[in-house]
């Protein structure tokens, strides 16, 4: 009875294929729309932020739900995919939005705190993505590796403020993301000892 059992490795492969397909679908969807640049930029930014938030939700939810616990090792894939989406977001900004005009990009960073925050988040996420593997855990030792990866919280906070500040109005989404982060931090605080 029940569904055929799929190993965690296969489930992870399916997840990877799925998130890759979502990215491809997003690109095709943007090509159909009236403004490719903002569609692609916003799509990758939005879903990158959600993926990072989901990766943070794994720990508390795994203590509540068994099915999350069984898939706990997917957390890493989701986090890394969040970084891949963020990288696409940044590359779209550099190529499609600014067309490699570095001077203009510097001016824009100087004049826009929200862009600075986005770049800061990307800089914080980069070492985390690089160390998202068994080798790095072994190299640092689990505790230190874990400490390093608490930086995700700082990065996600920067991402959410970045999202909030880039909006003219319709603040629901960044506020929604922000409240999830606050709940997560509260949970972390309660379970700190």
């Amino acid at each position: 009875m029940g569904l055929p059992r799929i190993s965690i490795t296969t489930r992870k492969h399916l997840l990877n294929i799925g998130l890759c397909l979502v990215l491809i679908w997003g690109m095709f969807d943007a090509i159909k729309g009236p403004d490719l640049v903002s569609d692609l930029r916003d799509f990758t930014g939005r879903y990158g932020a959600y993926l990072l938030l989901i990766s943070l939700l794994f720990t508390p939810l795994s203590q509540r739900f068994n099915w999350v616990k069984r898939n706990l090792s997917m957390r890493r894939n989701i986090g890394v995919w969040g970084f891949i989406y963020a990288t696409m977001h940044l590359l779209i900004w550099i190529t499609l939005e600014f067309y490699y005009d570095w001077q203009l990009m510097l001016d824009e960073i100087a004049g826009n705190l929200f862009i600075l925050l986005g770049i800061l988040a990307f800089i914080l996420l980069t070492p985390l993505a690089i160390t998202s593997n068994h080798r790095a855990v072994k190299y640092f030792g689990y505790r230190k590796w874990q400490l390093l990866h608490t930086l995700t919280y700082v990065a996600v906070a920067a991402v959410i403020v970045h999202h909030f500040m880039a909006q003219k109005t319709a603040m629901f989404e960044p506020l929604f993301m922000g409240s999830i982060l606050v709940l997560l931090l509260f949970w972390r605080y309660r379970h700190a000892r």
């Binding site: 640049v37 203009l104 824009e108 004049g111 826009n112 705190l113 929200f114 500040m165 880039a166």
Partner: peptide
């Protein structure tokens, strides 16, 4: 919250 120096 953002610069008006340039436009897309």
């Amino acid at each position: 919250r953002w610069t008006q120096a340039t436009e897309r």
